[in-house]
């Protein structure tokens, strides 16, 4: 088994346009997806990321972000255990935010 990262890009929520029911529906979808991955012992960890960020350069200078457009912003990640890249690709079906323009980058974690 290898380790992979799913990096969620874009698909951020326009909260002022969402109803309580919309929040609920989307959360239920995330719950189901995470539960499925946990059940199959694939899910190791995952978190959502806030939009605010800081960039620090060699000069010690730091600037406040975000630095990319909302649709390119990393909104969260999963750490997973799987066979290979193909296997992880089949797991992306449960991602709830395609309809908001969200996409997923899959990267294998460098092992020893």
């Amino acid at each position: 088994m290898k380790e992979f990262m799913m990096i969620f890009i874009g698909g951020d929520y326009e909260t002022n346009d969402m109803s309580p029911e919309d929040f609920q529906r989307r959360m239920n979808l995330w719950n189901e997806w995470v539960e499925d991955l946990k059940k199959d012992d694939i899910f190791i960890d995952g978190r959502a990321l806030k939009n605010q960020s800081k960039m620090v350069e060699s000069t010690g200078l730091s600037t406040d972000g975000p630095f990319v457009e909302t649709k390119e912003l990393v909104t969260g990640y999963f750490l997973l255990k799987a066979k290979d890249l193909e296997h992880v690709t089949t797991l992306t079906k449960g991602y709830p935010d395609y309809d908001l323009g969200g996409k997923i980058e899959i990267r294998e974690i460098q092992a020893f």
């Binding site: 929520y13 909260t15 309580p20 929040f23 959360m27 959502a48 969260g76």
Partner: peptide, 14 residues
């Protein structure tokens, strides 16, 4: 209240 829901959506699944 909407902010609370947003926070729930972003944390409860994990």
């Amino acid at each position: 209240v909407m902010e609370a829901y947003y926070k729930a959506l972003k944390t409860w699944p994990y």
